[in-house]
Design a protein around this nucleic acid. Sequence first.
DNA 1: CTCCGACTTGAAGCGAACTTCAACTCAAGG
DNA 2: CCTTGAGTTGAAGTTCGCTTCAAGTCGGAG
Lengths: 150, 150
Amino acid sequence: MHEATLTIGQLADRSGVAPSALRYYERLGLIHAARTGGNQRRYARTELRRVAFIRISQQVGVSLEEIRAALDSLPSGRTPTPDDWAALSRAWRDRLDERIRLLGKLRDDLDGCIGCGCLSLQRCTLYNPEDSLAAEGPGPRLMLPRPGQG
Amino acid sequence: MHEATLTIGQLADRSGVAPSALRYYERLGLIHAARTGGNQRRYARTELRRVAFIRISQQVGVSLEEIRAALDSLPSGRTPTPDDWAALSRAWRDRLDERIRLLGKLRDDLDGCIGCGCLSLQRCTLYNPEDSLAAEGPGPRLMLPRPGQG
DNA sequence: CTCCGACTTGAAGCGAACTTCAACTCAAGG
DNA sequence: CCTTGAGTTGAAGTTCGCTTCAAGTCGGAG
């Protein structure tokens, strides 16, 4: 016991991420696994940290594609140090600040409009909260919480 | 000029929402339109306010299904008053506060972890920010910014 | 009346992030 | 050796919030 590597089930249990999601992450190049003779995945323990970083980044509102790009920027030769991870985390700080700021503004405006009950389209500050309304391309696009795009 | 009703194109222009989206909202029962003899939609001006409410609610992070439920709770007999709209908006306040609070906590934790560079799964407060990790059902589900889905 | 742009419909597609399924192999215990 | 649970694959399905398309109709100007 206390093996050096983890099976996909073990990584799933320890990270709280479903095996199917882990395989999906691997297809996207977010995590990596060695293979046994019988073609089963064996994860290094450092992959736990990668998975943690992925889930935290998702909470910040970053897409898997951007997360992949961030992970690719980790030093390739050596095992990433705490400082390496801290640098990546710092990169999300501004994202998070901006999201919090926009939501805060929305709340303030909503409070103001609860007072007046206006909801008038062009007039109300609520309706054009300084960005949004910039449609680009097909597919679903929400105005604020958009789970990955800018 | 200054007609009593709006065509779908006019409503689209005035609300900033694409005609296809407006038809979609109608299919979901979020907005309603009368029809001309030739089967074209004619929107009452009050629909403008409904559309505004829908877009604002989306920014708060509410799903179209929940928005529909909220709109259904408006008085059916009369045209909604500013107070009616204010009551609905107030209902989203708590949602918004909670989202802001969670993001704020994430930011603070992220700051803490930038200091230590830990990202350790079970130990780090970042990884289990008091809720999340409750999978239910198929389909995509993000942990925080979830644009509407549970 | 003709024309053209705006409108109608249903069905299909898209993008993200996964899950589910079927059919199969591997690994460990008895 | 046999069984059983865990792992493998590729393909297809799911959810949300739309957009796009094709094929046809409406409506107002000239």
